[in-house]
Design a protein around this nucleic acid. Structure first.
Lengths: 104, 104
DNA sequence: CCGACACATAAGCATACACTTATCTGATTT
DNA sequence: AAATCAGATAAGTGTATGCTTATGTGTCGG
């Protein structure tokens, strides 16, 4: 059950912070730690969780490992959310505008 | 931090099952238990978590309490997701179609 | 009013989870 | 080749969480 993975992954505030940081630009695990008050193993463990949830993907670069947002996880969340479109309130009109932006 | 509430609430598979059942049609706590192999207190506790995450709302009806999907929680998830629209893959085109349906 | 019913709350317990320190792997540099 | 550095993994620990068995609260029917 893949839903379990991404909801569990995002249930932790530290992991959401990591994800948000990566959304602002891909970087390696050490760079992610800057200004985050988190140990190296903790970061590594969080990244492993985000990875198995398809929210983040890695790319070895020498002895660094570059991390970036994996669109697949976001797609899965969007698909889950789409199931409940019958309940989306008008407020979600904002989302429609955003989607139009995607067409640019 | 409201994000914490809904991600934590949905991280549990039992709560997602309850939510999905409610999405198919509002009903009271006892009806929700049908075919779910879950104790009455457990259900009550799960509903409390979903309630505080704004994913579900209640409505007293005599000695029954009717539960239904609360659009507010879904809206919050959609808003969170919208922040990362830059990473949405083309696959999400399906979502655009769904949104067009909403305009009917 | 009193028993039954729908549901919430309390308290206790077992497991999951996020952290720690220590160690390991693999790549780079000198 | 040896030291160093980026990162992963292992093992242990405290706390959060989902469950259980009571018990409490409010509403209804007789």
């Amino acid at each position: 059950m893949i839903e379990n993975d991404f909801f569990r992954a995002l249930a932790d505030p530290t992991r959401r912070a990591i994800f948000e940081k990566l959304a602002a630009g891909s970087m390696n695990a050490s760079a992610l730690r800057n200004g985050m008050e988190i140990s190296q193993p903790a970061m590594s463990q969080h990244l492993a969780v985000l990875r198995s949830a398809k929210l983040v993907r890695e790319q070895r670069q020498g002895r660094f490992v570059n991390y970036e947002v994996d669109p697949e996880g976001l797609a899965l969340i969007a698909q889950w959310l789409a199931k409940y479109r019958a309940y989306w309130p008008d407020r979600i009109a904002a989302l429609k505008v955003l989607l139009k932006d995607m067409d640019q």
